[in-house]
Design a protein around this nucleic acid. Structure first.
Length: 487
RNA sequence: GGCGACGUGGCCAAGAGGCUAAGGCAGAGGACUGCAAAUCCUUUAUCCCCGGUUCGAAUCCGGGCGUCGCCUCCA
């Protein structure tokens, strides 16, 4: 079984065959940086980061390009409102982008090219399109002529005539065809502008992605991704420009994630019902948000509300509990000098490997994270059962199996899905951590004394009060376990 | 108007012709516990409706109802 990918271009799942053995070249459309990113931006960000992680896990060398649109009408408008410089504004939100991305444990791409730094490349490609007869100049603007490109509409599955019939775009009499789109826009006074053969101006929206993907990945790379709303017109136009210019096929696999809805309605900038990642991270831990985004298959719509995040948090806690239990038992068996040979024929060992195989099978099948999580939970169940056996130290290969279970769990959840499995609070309060630990342990000691005297009132009182503070006490046959409650 | 997607247990969500329809959350019962917590075990589905194809359909085809999206900046 190899990795299979649903390709928007062919409307079917196809086996992934890289252009270059052992390598994956992927380009994912990045944000227009005129504001903090919102949840809708977070989905492709997290999902394609997971794709990239999975390819690495499967032994591929991944070259991942994600652009920033830092030259754009919306940025200009916003800068005008705020009385700032458009490029400075864009730069500010690029920096903010990295903060949110980092919080969501998204790795930086191999390259993050910006439009503003590729103007000469863009101009060169536009010139090439004009030379080949695919584009034409009208005053200071340059348009791509959709009629001149035979394959126009192949990605979105629409013919030019169909598009024309339903067109809502206002007709610009200077265009040869209403669907022709701008490659270069003449600048109005005060707007950011660069020199070009057609006068001062700036690039249109679509050309940048063609230019930057071609520059960093070459004329035919493996994967091009983005949100489903980019299929038309953005990606359709990219294909037209790129293939017209190069005369050869552009990206091979086109992947598009579904939308996030709020109250079953599309979250969009124009509706104003979008949530900033920042706002959500103020209410929920970042790992829960990432987990939530991966619980649903990437091509399905995903409805957001607080209640669902809360459920995700509980589900994720289950995984964290297993990790904690495994660590605890590993420490215990290590302290009694148990042998840590791994005996793969033991029944638990076999179940662990089976979970791992299920996980890979699920991810191979068009990155089915939802099904992959089922394998993770199965591993949790298997691990919990095994680790909680009273005669664990007598089990052959017990320590080896616990260690293997932990390794597999971390591979799947931390390495591939990108969920750190850390207790956030512990990480956050490092400074006071030692003192808190000492204090909690003192209280636990006092409580144990009360319990020894069967003074349940005092014992329960301490436990309840600690819980209010955010410390959870669990009595086990081998002593007391405590942890911080998150949130 | 043109094009497309979706409708699975109380909720979320996999599955895309054939063993008992994954998994999570919530609920119920049990084990463990001084009581809890955590954990384990058991338990909850005429797969929107109506036709059709097939030995066999949640899965394929047709029709209906419903929801959503794209065609305009959007991930």
């Amino acid at each position: 079984m190899s990795i299979h990918i649903y390709n928007t271009l062919t409307h079917s799942k196809e086996p992934f065959i890289p252009g270059e053995e052992g390598k994956v070249k992927m380009y994912v459309c990045g944000p227009t940086t005129y504001n903090y990113i919102h949840l809708g931006n977070a989905r492709p960000l997290v999902f394609f980061d997971t794709v990239r992680r999975y390819f690495s896990y499967r032994g591929y060398q991944v070259q991942y390009v994600q652009n920033f649109t830092d030259v754009d009408d919306k940025i200009i408008k916003r800068a005008e409102e705020e009385g700032t410089d458009p490029l400075a504004l864009a730069q500010k939100y690029i920096e903010e982008f990295f903060q949110d991305a980092q919080a969501l444990n998204v790795k930086p791409a191999s390259v993050h090219p910006k439009v503003s730094e590729h103007i000469p490349d863009i101009v060169a490609l536009i010139e090439q399109l004009i030379d080949k007869g695919f584009a034409y100049q009208v005053e200071g603007d340059v348009y791509f002529s959709v009629r001149s490109f035979e394959g126009y509409g192949k990605l979105s599955g629409r013919s030019l005539d169909e598009l024309q019939a339903g067109a809502r775009v206002e007709v610009d009499a200077r265009k040869k065809d209403p669907l022709d789109f701008a490659l270069w826009k003449q600048a109005k006074p005060g707007e950011p502008a660069w020199e070009s053969p057609w006068g001062m101006g700036r690039p249109g929206w679509h050309i940048e992605c063609s230019v930057m993907s071609l520059k960093y990945l070459g004329p035919h790379f493996d994967i091009h991704g983005g949100g489903a709303d980019l299929v038309f017109p953005h990606h359709e136009n990219e294909i037209a420009q790129s293939e017209a210019a190069c005369g050869e096929p552009f990206a091979k696999y086109w992947m598009h994630n579904g939308f996030i809805t709020v109250n079953q309605e599309k979250m969009s900038k124009s509706l104003g019902n979008f949530f900033l990642v920042r706002e959500i991270l103020a209410k929920f831990p970042a790992d829960v948000v990432r987990f939530f985004l991966l619980e649903t298959h990437y091509r399905s719509p995903l409805d957001f509300d607080d209640q669902k995040l809360l459920e995700s948090k509980k589900a994720l806690d289950r995984i964290k509990n297993t990790k904690g239990l495994l660590q605890e038992k590993i420490a215990f068996l290590t302290s009694v000098n148990a042998n840590d040979d791994y005996l793969p024929e033991e029944s638990t060992a076999r179940k662990i490997e089976q979970c791992r195989e299920e996980f890979i099978k699920a991810m191979d099948d068009d990155f089915n994270t939802s099904l992959a999580l089922a394998a993770v939970f199965e591993l949790c169940r298997v691990s919990n059962s095994f680790a909680n056996q009273p005669d664990l130290p007598q089990k052959p290969g017990a320590l080896g199996q616990l260690k293997r279970a932990l390794t597999v769990l971390e591979e799947m959840v931390v390495e591939v899905l990108g969920i750190p499995l850390q207790r956030e609070e512990t990480a956050r309060h490092n400074q006071d951590g030692a003192m808190v630990t000492a204090l909690v342990e003192l209280l636990i000691e006092l409580r144990q004394e009360a319990r020894a005297k069967k003074d349940w009132g005092t014992a329960d009182g301490i436990r309840d009060r600690l819980k209010e503070i955010g410390i959870i006490i669990e009595d086990t046959p081998h002593g007391v376990r405590w942890k911080r409650a998150e949130q």
